[in-house]
Structures are given as structure tokens and as C-alpha cells.
Nucleic acid binder design. Sequence first.
DNA 1: ACATTTATAGTACGACCGTACAAAGAATGG
DNA 2: CCATTCTTTGTACGGTCGTACTATAAATGT
Lengths: 189, 189
Amino acid sequence: MAGRPVDHQRRAELLDAVVDYTVEHGFSDLSWRPVAAALGVSTTTLVHRFGTKEQMLVAILARLRERIFAATSETLGEHPDLATAARAAWTRTSAPQREAEFRLFFAVYGRALQAPEQFAGFLDRVVADWMNALRDAQGPGTDPQTATRTATLVIATIRGLLLDLLATGDRERVQDAAETFLATLPRRP
Amino acid sequence: MAGRPVDHQRRAELLDAVVDYTVEHGFSDLSWRPVAAALGVSTTTLVHRFGTKEQMLVAILARLRERIFAATSETLGEHPDLATAARAAWTRTSAPQREAEFRLFFAVYGRALQAPEQFAGFLDRVVADWMNALRDAQGPGTDPQTATRTATLVIATIRGLLLDLLATGDRERVQDAAETFLATLPRRP
DNA sequence: ACATTTATAGTACGACCGTACAAAGAATGG
DNA sequence: CCATTCTTTGTACGGTCGTACTATAAATGT
């Protein structure tokens, strides 16, 4: 009655490989054939796993979001106050090893801004992930509105500084500005 | 000896029309034919004016940068201190009328981050424009390094907040965070 | 008027795109 | 063993892409 079972792990493997490829080769003119060639499979295999190209793009977005958030959130809950948590977040995101990943992130983000219905949920989720993490980093006694306000500001500033860093490569100037900002955050509740 | 003169104004007209089209229809899958159809000209006309597609993209970037910077810089030199200048900049950039323009801006920016050599100079210039304007907004007696640091931070924060606003549409929350940030800026030299 | 250069349009060509289709191998349950 | 389902591949089709080529109209200087 039941035939060969669906190999879900295989899809996950391929997705991760596709994300790796995308991080390296960019997102703007991604197509089946070069990706398949790079992975050593046929285009049909990719189509079989992801359905349509748009569905693959959505899958890439989701996986990329997972990766980026996982890499930063694991160190976000271990800090006593917002200042050190924000510093840890900044150190993580501005690390040179993750530069390519964040270049892709902003490319995807910008594209999602122009096609919100196509990538519905992605933008909201990316903000929500960080919001929750940074709200928790503040003391439990903090006024909710203040916590939201501060978290919004921290996320925006880190993201804006990262954008500057990726665009100019002037690490010294950007780091200097980051220090100034981090110094304004509350250090002990 | 000399034939018909080159009509440079025509190129400028077409470029502005193309930028208008791009603001509305997005940047990611722009191609000659739909643009030409929308403008009521042939693709050959566009090719004749811009050369190759890549050259047209570069032209779009340059014009978009001009537009955005012109719209905000005109009110940036008239303020007594940094706080009011930054507030004016934020009010301008976060205005709902310019939303589509900034969506395109971030899409272009993100793409330029992944193909820096293709859009060489664009990223540096976009930062430099604002840097100069915001450095001048601070008093002439300000320490240069402090001025650079503050300008970097203001630009990054505004850009990050704008990114959040465009992604979530939660104007109240973002505006709240913006007020918090603006309140930290020096108000009188 | 005439030669010369630009402006615009129509057409055509090769390349790549997404994806549908058919066929063959592999893994399951009965 | 066998039927069934999944996996992978090769191939083919229609469409769009960028752009080169050709021809005609318009605007200049002599």
C-alpha cells in the first residue's frame, strides 16, 4: 500500500546547500540551472523538492532568518542588562565572518520591502525575533512600553550601523559610533 | 560638417520617467520592454539613450540618490543645532509620501551590497552625502572626530528606524523610538 | 540643397529562463 | 515477488531577455 517514504532530510540538506550558494553568489538573479550545477544535481531534483522558484525563494528566506537569528540569539539571554546584551548582539552581527551572510540578508530584506505580499511574514518575523529577545534582556520590572521603545531603538541602530559598515567598510568609524550608542544604554537595573 | 546635435535633455526626461516607473514597479526584474511600453517608446530608444542595461541601472541609482538627497538636504542646513536638524531629517524621510521612494532605495542599496563592483561609488556616496550635511549641522567648534561619530550614529539610527517602519508599518512604535533617540542629541552648542 | 549626424522604430537572433513531461532506478509494505 | 510511491534524470516547449542590425525621419552646418 504505502510506497517509498518522503525524505524530508534530503530537502533540508539541499536547502542548506542552496542557501550557501546564495550567500556566495547573490540573490538577485538566482536560477535553477546554475544552482543545480553547483550542487551536482539536476534542476529537476530542485524542482521536485521546492515546487516552484518562488517557493524556493521563500524557503531560502526562512532558512536564512533561522540561521541569522540562531547565531545571535544564543548569546542574547545570558546577559544581566541591556547594555551588555546589545553589545554582544553588535559584536556578533559585525563580525567579519558573517559579512557575506548579512549582505545577503539586506539584499533579501530590500527586495521583500518592494514585494511585501510575495514574502509575507518575513519582514514582521525578522523584527519580532529581535524584539522578543531584546525585551527579555531588559529587567522584568521594566515598563512594557519603555522596553518596546528601547528594543526598537537598539535593533534599528545596530541594523543601521551594520548597513554603514557593509557599505563603506570603515570599521573604525562605525565601531566608534557603536561605542557611543552602547554607552547610552542602561547598565544595571 | 556637424549633424544633428545630441539631445541631452531628452535623456534626462527619459531617465526621470524610468526612475518613476522603477519606484512603482520595483527594481529586481526590470527589463527594457515593459519600461519602454509604459513610456510609450520603443526599446531601441532606451538602448540608444542608455547604452546597456547595466548602464541604465547605474543611471537610475545616481538619479535616485540625487532625488532623495535633494529632498532632504534642502532643509538640513537651516537648523541651529544637531537635534533639530536630525528631527527634520527624520520627519522628511519618514513621511508617507516618500515611502515608495525609500522602498526602492533600500532595494537598490541591498543589491549594491551584493554587487559592490557593479555599483561602485554608490554606497560610499550615499553615506558621504549625509555625513557632510550632518557634520555641518553641528557647530563649527565641534571636535571633528566627535562630529563624525555623531553624524554616523544619526544616519545609522534614522536609516534603521526607517527600515523598521517600512517593514512593519507600525508608525506609532517607531516614532516613539525616534523621539527617544532625538531627545539624546545636543540641543544647543 | 546637401552631406552628416542623431532619433526612433521594427525586426531578428541566440541565450537563458521556469517548468511540464516521460522514463528509469530505489525503497517501502504486503 | 509485486504493487506503489518517491527520487532522479534528460529532454523539450514556450516565453522573455539583452542587444545587434537595418531603415526611415528629423535636425543641423555649409
